[in-house]
Amino acid sequence: MIPAEFDYVRADSVDGALGALAEGGEDAKLLAGGHSLLPLMKLRLAVPTVLVDIGGLDELRGVERENGGWRVGALTTHATLQDTDELGVVARAASLIADQQVRNRGTIGGSLAHGDPASDLPGVLLAFDGSVTARSGGGEREIAAADLFQDYLTTSLGADEVITTVNMPALEGYGWGYEKFTRRAEDWAMVGVVALVKASGGGCEDVRIGLTHMGPTPLRATAAEDALRGGPLDAERIAAAAEHAADGTEPPGDANATPDYKRHLARVLTRRALESAAAGAA
């Protein structure tokens, strides 16, 4: 209910934050919106010794269209994404995160850095083949989504790195579908599916399917993608492809969903998401 004690540094620049992180050592943590970290700290499941608050770095906020893609500042809130209709499925997914109060504080960078496979945005980034730009004292690097999510709550970000930007291709002409299955509106996804489809001449030119909470990291449903790509984009083919949505997955079970049930949900939700995406792509 109450976090353990920590020291607090308010960063006034990215470089300042990096310096403070380095100085704080391995138990230093970045604080953005705080909506992944503070709940854990209140339950004392996370006990950082130093918090480096980057919440005031306005240069890390904003959504820009650049070179045929989207550059989203890491501190951009879910609420901003939700209100940016041009972002399509990203806006839709953001609008379904938790509740409005959480969306007003939570940030895209924080969500991705936390790497929770039950969160909405990691699976979306993976489906987009997006990336993050991360900066450390040693400079900047771009990490592809496929390389970012390593394991449960584990990313390839170094302890001394800060995500500055999230990059996504615009995927012009793609239709999209987003299916999030929860017990209650404000819950994390039991299973979530994002589908992106590009059609040409009645067939499926390209398809990307991201899965949420079907493993320790977000996943791509590659078998289902392969089953649909290049073929006709009709209901029958979509249904057949969706049957492969859970191939190879080992989803974590919990009190409300066994792994088998989650695999079943993934197949149903994938079909539904693909149907929406195909309709939007037509």
């Binding site: 017990r183 209650r184 509106a185 404000e186 819950d187 009190a255």
Partner: peptide, 28 residues
């Protein structure tokens, strides 16, 4: 439809917060 206090076989409470003990919201 939503709420249940659940203990596991070791007597540990599985539903110890409002995350797991699911009160319905207005949306339900």
């Amino acid at each position: 439809l939503y709420e249940q206090i659940v203990y596991d076989e070791d007597g540990q409470l599985v539903t110890g917060t409002f995350v797991d003990y699911a009160l319905p919201t207005a949306a339900e």
